[in-house]
Amino acid sequence: MNSIYQYFRAIWYGFSSLWKGMMLTGHYLVHPKKILTEQYPENRDTLYIPDRFQGEVVLPHDENNEHLCTGCTICEMNCPNGSIKIITQQVVTPEGKKKKELDKWVYHLGLCTFCGQCIDACPQDAIKMSNAFEHSVYDRKVLTKVLNQPGSKLKSAKK
């Protein structure tokens, strides 16, 4: 007798549990307001990107075309992937002193893993991460960037 009871109990349990699951999917079918997905390229303007999002390394310049990088190459040493190459040059200051200065801040976006260790290590806080995330290009060469703008200078220490 018990086995017959178990037999019908199994049938009942099967139906009721399956019906419960169907109620859940049915619930979401008739509640389209709970839809989570976003239509990406259309909502580009309203997209929420957190401030700290690590998109790519940038070297901010102010309105006088001046940046903070002294060319100390600490970021280059801290980069685990070799995606940073700092090229410096020797310049003679008007006072006649010889000084090392940044020539090219080369950034290989294709090698970068966005770990943020260069930003963490920079003693001058010269570089930071921007929120740009649409990096796809058709030519790999475009991914090698020179971050300092042409003719830019080191910001003089204190004004």
Binding site: P50, D51, R52, F53, T113, G116, D120
Partner: peptide, 23 residues
């Protein structure tokens, strides 16, 4: 993403603490 800057490979916990303060 808000606190660490990325979603999957965060690299947030570092020797001596964490990289950034909480958002």
């Amino acid at each position: 993403e808000e606190t660490c800057g990325s979603r999957l490979t965060m690299n947030y916990i570092t020797p001596g603490g964490v990289v950034n303060d909480l958002h």
